[in-house]
Amino acid sequence: MQERVTMADVARAAGVSSATVSYVLSGKRPVAPETRAAVEAAIAELGFTVNSTARSLRTGRSSLVALIVPDIANPFFAQLAATLQEELRGLGIHVVVCNTRARRDEERALLAEAVQQRFAGVVITPFRLLPRDFEAVTRAGIPVVVSADVPFGPVDQIMPETRTATRQALERVTAARRRRIAMIAGPRDATGGDPRLELLRTLALQFGTSLPRELVVRGEHTREAGAAGFAELMDRRYRPDAVFCGNDVIAVGALDKARELGVDIPGDVALVGHDDAVFASLVRPQLTTVRYPAEEVGRAAARLLGERFDGRGVHRTVRVRAEFVARASA
């Protein structure tokens, strides 16, 4: 039987130390391009793979990280999953994607499963969880990274910085003399409320307009909810002339309903999404949106987990800046 190729074998073939091979695989430290090329050539020639099984036996943990998201059909979360997997591959870590359908019971069950299976880590976008729901995971010593708009207590967290981008979206809308601002927002029982709604309401006042209660409709972050919400807004006595959406999936549902009702976008109503999902530039009219980069969120989550694997004890919060993307819908 052929013996397994080790990191030391790769190091000898490349003429470097085993530590350098580790740095190339994990990305924890910079490596000169020519050195990286030599290591990668040795890896390819020898057929080296990371022995995650041996590490699991040594640490008592699996080589799996759970990525728990509310809607895997949303391209934002698909891109997040792809980036996280790519970033963790060099550490011999594999990503298991878990879909909660934004249900609290599913979220709690998946956290319990991560503890039972001794996962190496958890990255989660919670929808209806509370900070106390993470206590069992953290007590088990499993690193947790939360991606959310509101703080979740003593865990590592990724939070968006969207104020500037939202302000720019409002500038564009109000510059076109649109004053009746509406929003298709998320459900009332989401943990922490709806920070995107509250930010829009606060900033609207600075532009001499407002976001009145009667022009806010709520629903899940789905295409169907977007269509229903847009229809409800168009049935108001005083129709809005600009509609902001909690995410791009909602906005696509609104576009569907606008076509059905004969409402011109952006002639009659300006439409603004959130996230800049891959389809935002493919729909017609192309969707004006606030870009929250899923790739950056994935990279930040991988960095936070890697630091935890290396023994960092202090919790960190990483802020990811959003950008305004002007297209044809507003």
Rank of each mutant, 00 (worst) to 15 (best):
T166Y: 15
A148C: 11
D189S: 04
R236S: 07
P187H: 13
R303G: 07
Q2H: 08
R118D: 06
P70W: 04
S147P: 00
R237W: 01
T100R: 05
F76M: 03
A41C: 09
R36H: 01
A120T: 06
S26D: 02
R284K: 09
R177E: 07
Q206R: 09
Q116C: 03
A330P: 01
P151K: 06
S22N: 13
E107K: 12
E86Q: 05
G262W: 02
P195M: 14
E171N: 10
V243C: 08
L130Y: 08
R319Y: 11
L203T: 10
T35Q: 10
V252Q: 07
T53M: 13
A251E: 02
V39L: 06
V5F: 02
P187S: 13
V39S: 01
R239P: 05
T83S: 14
E214N: 10
V249C: 02
G47Q: 03
V16S: 03
S329T: 14
I124F: 03
Q206W: 02
V39K: 00
L80R: 08
R188K: 14
F230L: 10
G192P: 08
R239G: 09
R101S: 11
A301W: 00
V290Q: 02
V325M: 12
R308K: 03
G229M: 13
A294C: 04
T53V: 12
R4H: 06
R321V: 15
V39Y: 01
L80D: 06
A185D: 04
R29N: 14
S17H: 11
A302Q: 03
A8H: 07
A322K: 01
I43S: 02
Q286A: 14
R327N: 12
F77A: 08
G193R: 01
E45T: 09
T100Q: 06
P266L: 12
D276Y: 00
T174P: 00
D189T: 04
A82V: 02
L200N: 00
L57V: 05
A277S: 13
R308H: 07
V10K: 01
D156G: 13
I158A: 00
A270V: 08
S17K: 08
G226W: 11
A326I: 07
R218C: 08
